[in-house]
C-alpha cells in the first residue's frame, strides 16, 4: 500500500467513527422516506384494495 507511512494507531475506545455515523443516519433517513413513499403512495394509493 502506498500510504503506509501515514498510518496512525488508534484504539477502539478512542476511535469515534463519525463519518460512519453520519452515513448510517443518512441511510436511516432515506429508508424512512422510501418506506413511507412505497407504503402510503405506491401501495395504499394503488387501485383495488383487497378488503376481505
Amino acid at each position: 500500500m502506498s500510504t503506509e507511512t501515514a498510518k496512525k494507531e488508534i484504539d477502539h475506545e478512542d476511535f469515534d467513527p463519525k463519518g460512519t455515523l453520519a452515513l448510517i443516519l443518512l441511510y436511516f433517513v432515506i429508508l424512512a422516506i422510501l418506506w413511507i413513499f412505497m407504503y402510503f403512495i405506491e401501495f395504499l394509493g394503488n387501485d383495488l384494495t383487497v378488503i376481505g
Binding site: 455515523l21 448510517i24 443516519l25 436511516f28 429508508l31 424512512a32 418506506w35 407504503y39 401501495f43 395504499l44 384494495t49 383487497v50 378488503i51 376481505g52
Partner: peptide
C-alpha cells in the same frame, strides 16, 4: 445509537403493516 434506531425502524415497519391491516382494512 444505531442499534436503537435499527430496532425503531423494524418496529415502525411492523406497525405500518398492522395499520394497513386494521385501520385501512387491507385483508390477506
Amino acid at each position: 445509537i444505531w442499534l436503537v434506531l435499527a430496532m425503531l425502524l423494524i418496529v415502525a415497519f411492523i406497525s405500518t403493516v398492522a395499520y394497513g391491516a386494521t385501520a385501512m382494512g387491507v385483508d390477506m
